Simulated assay, not measured.
Amino acid sequence: MRTLSEYNTELKLKGFNVFQIEEDANATRLYSRKDFYKICLTTGKSKIHYAERSYKTEGTILFFGNPHIPYSWETLSTKYKGYTVLFSETFLSPKNRSENLQQSPLFKIGGTPVLEITEKQRQFLNSIFQKMIEEQQSDYEYKADLIRNYINLILHESLKLKPSENFNQNKNAAERLTNVFMELLERQFPVESPDKPLQLTTANDYAKNLSVHVNYLNRSVKEVTGKTTTAHISTRVISEAKAILQHTDWNISEIAFALGFEYPTYFNNFFKKHTGVNPSSLRA
């Protein structure tokens, strides 16, 4: 069994890793969403929280994780099996394919990150994952190219299932603007360093960036989502604050600055207002 540092080293050096979940169950938790796209082929009951949506799954599914979108996974089955492949943008596309990835119905914000898979499809996809594992362990000089082709094959087989039919197309100007706002909001995260704080923190900031009047942005977002622009921003900042509190050793002052608060007191008050508890309580 390889250690956490060995897994991370392999990812940093090669830009990918593939493994069988039933053998390396804890490995799915080793990788930060900040760096890697993820494709999981799994069989079992689970609940997936993806951006602002949740999916309850049973049977075999394909899941597509985008490093620019927050997600979490609750395994509900006592028995759970499958495969996971993780890859960086530069590994899959040295020639700037990443923009296409982010616009794909499989990875796009508002797209379809979960596909139900039949038994016949599962067997075929199993064989692809098994081939990737074999190549990863081989000495073949061009194994990275071959694995890249296998990943693209999975993506194309998934697109043939027409995931775009399951996702809402923009029907008017308000929906188009709201969609762009939500994408821009997600692109501000994750916050990777206290030295690189959020640049857009208010509805006015987003309106200026999108070259629209703030009233028009607010009206559009409220019409489409039922929530205000500020509410979406606050929800996302709280989500990021919780992740930073739970997964880093940054102090409260650093977290406050990183999330765009001038003083730690402002951050403490904001966090307690939205969660009912003080930030430090998450580290107790």
Rank of each mutant, 00 (worst) to 15 (best):
L4T: 09
N8K: 12
N8C: 03
E10R: 14
K14Q: 12
I21L: 13
E23P: 04
E23L: 11
D24Q: 12
S32V: 03
K34A: 12
C40V: 14
T42H: 07
T42M: 11
T43I: 05
K45E: 15
I48E: 07
H49F: 15
A51Q: 03
E52R: 12
R53H: 06
H68W: 04
H68L: 10
I69N: 02
P70A: 08
P70R: 11
W73P: 00
W73S: 05
E74M: 03
T75K: 15
T75I: 15
S77I: 02
K79H: 15
K81I: 04
G82F: 01
Y83N: 06
T84E: 15
L86M: 08
L86C: 01
F87K: 06
S88A: 07
E89I: 01
L92F: 00
S93P: 01
K95N: 10
S98V: 13
Q102T: 12
F107K: 03
F107T: 02
F107M: 01
T112P: 00
T112I: 07
V114D: 00
V114N: 02
K120D: 14
I128M: 05
F129A: 02
M132F: 05
I133K: 06
Q137F: 12
E141Y: 13
E141H: 11
K143E: 05
I147S: 11
I151L: 01
I151A: 00
N152K: 15
L153Y: 00
L153W: 01
L153H: 02
L153S: 10
E157R: 12
L161T: 04
K162I: 06
E165N: 13
F167V: 08
N168Y: 02
N170S: 09
A173Q: 13
E175N: 01
R176W: 06
L177S: 04
T178Y: 01
N179Y: 09
V180Y: 08
R187E: 14
Q188G: 10
V191F: 11
S193Y: 07
P194Y: 09
P194G: 03
P194L: 09
K196V: 12
P197L: 08
K208C: 05
V212D: 09
H213F: 13
V214I: 13
Y216F: 07
V221R: 06
K222W: 03
E223N: 13
V224F: 05
G226N: 04
T228D: 09
A231R: 10
H232W: 15
V237G: 01
V237L: 08
V237Q: 07
A241M: 12
K242W: 00
K242S: 05
Q246K: 14
Q246L: 15
D249K: 14
I252N: 13
I255S: 02
G260C: 10
F261L: 06
F261K: 02
E262R: 14
P264K: 01
Y266S: 11
F271Y: 14
H274A: 03
H274P: 00
T275I: 13
T275N: 03
N278V: 05
S280H: 15
A284D: 08
